[in-house]
Computed example of a mutant assay.
Amino acid sequence: MMATELKDTVSFEDTLGRLDIRLGRIVEAVLEPSAPRPAYRLTIDFGKYGRKTSVGRFTQHPAEELVGQQVLGVLNFEPRQIGEVSSEVLILGVQYPGAASGEATVIAPVQDAKLGGKVF
């Protein structure tokens, strides 16, 4: 498979500087039957920023493997309706090896860190 070209260079202020990406911990993961494709409804604790709901395609992992996992979430995207659920935060992930397109594994820190901590 051929690698895709890198995108144009952008400034920090116009990109990552505008996103509020923070560390959270998954406290609940349940299958979301109303989602158009297999997905979990996740409840994530972002410390002083509260608990947020996200619907994500992390179903290659058993739910019990995700609970307790620290994850990175974009807190300042507009909520997105997925099935019957308003997904309040985008949990960052990458393609799960060998899985169908869009099925992901979470991006997580090597070391547990403070909930609500900002990515920089």
Rank of each mutant, 00 (worst) to 15 (best):
E88P: 08
G102L: 08
G83D: 10
K52D: 01
F77L: 15
F58Y: 15
V110N: 07
A99C: 12
E64C: 00
V89C: 09
S101W: 04
Q111G: 00
L75Y: 01
V10A: 10
T105Y: 03
D8E: 15
R80P: 00
G24F: 09
I21F: 11
M1A: 14
A3S: 07
V89R: 11
Q69T: 08
A104W: 03
A99H: 13
L19C: 11
F77H: 12
T43F: 03
V106M: 07
S54G: 04
K7L: 14
I107N: 02
P38E: 10
D45I: 03
A104I: 02
L72H: 05
S87F: 13
A29E: 09
V85W: 07
A39Y: 11
L42R: 08
T15Q: 11
Y49G: 00
V94A: 12
G17A: 10
V71D: 00
P109Q: 05
L90S: 00
S86M: 15
K118R: 15
E64W: 03
T9L: 14
L75P: 01
G117R: 13
E65S: 13
T43N: 02
H61F: 14
G17K: 12
L66R: 01
L31N: 12
A100H: 02
G56A: 13
V30K: 15
R18W: 04
P38W: 06
Q60R: 10
G50T: 08
G17I: 09
L75K: 01
